[in-house]
C-alpha cells in the first residue's frame, strides 16, 4: 500500500493504491485537520495547487448520517463545485466540526485552462473501503472514482 508521501509530519495526506482509481489517506491532530488534508489531497489530484490563486472564498455546510458519511459528503461537495462552478480550491479551514456536521471555508479561483495545470477529473468520493479513525492522531481513508 505504498503511496506518494506529500507532506510528512503531524498533518498531511498520501495517495493509496487501488487498481482502477485512487485513494487518499489523510491525517492530523483532529478529525477536522484530517478532513482539511483530505480536501487538499483531492484538489492536488485535479490541479497543481501552486498554479491556483486565492481569489474567492467559498463556505460549505455539510451534514452526514455519521462521521464516515460526513467525509464522503464533504469531498462530494467539493467535487460538485468543480463541475458546476469550475472552482479550484487550494486552502481550507474547518470552522466547526461536530460529529455529523461541519462548517468549512475554502479559498481558490475559477478554472482557467491557460494558467492552471489541470490533471485528472474526479467523478466521486465512494464508500468503498472508507475509514475514519478519530485518533488522536486522527486518520481517514477514502477511495475516489476517477
Amino acid at each position: 500500500m505504498l503511496g506518494e508521501m506529500t507532506i510528512a509530519g503531524e498533518r498531511g495526506y498520501r495517495y493509496l493504491e487501488h487498481t482502477a482509481d485512487t485513494g487518499i489517506e489523510a491525517w492530523g491532530a483532529t478529525l477536522a485537520d484530517a478532513f482539511a488534508e483530505a480536501a487538499l489531497g483531492l484538489f492536488a489530484l485535479m490541479v497543481d495547487p501552486s498554479t491556483v490563486k486565492e481569489r474567492t472564498e467559498r463556505r460549505f455546510v455539510v451534514r452526514g448520517d455519521d462521521v464516515e458519511d460526513l467525509l464522503v459528503r464533504w469531498l462530494s461537495e467539493l467535487i460538485a463545485v468543480v463541475d458546476s462552478e469550475g472552482l479550484l480550491l487550494r486552502r481550507f479551514a474547518i470552522d466547526s466540526f461536530e460529529g455529523k456536521t461541519m462548517v468549512a471555508r475554502g479559498w481558490g479561483e475559477t478554472l482557467d485552462p491557460s494558467r492552471h495545470e489541470v490533471r485528472v477529473a474526479v467523478k466521486a468520493a465512494t464508500y468503498h473501503r472508507l475509514s475514519v479513525d478519530a485518533g488522536p492522531p486522527a486518520r481517514v481513508r477514502v477511495i475516489l472514482d476517477l
Binding site: 487501488h18 482502477a20 465512494t126 477511495i143
Partner: peptide, 9 residues
C-alpha cells in the same frame, strides 16, 4: 474483472 466500488468492474 478488477476492483471497483460495491460491484467489481
Amino acid at each position: 474483472i478488477h476492483e471497483g466500488y460495491g460491484f467489481p468492474i
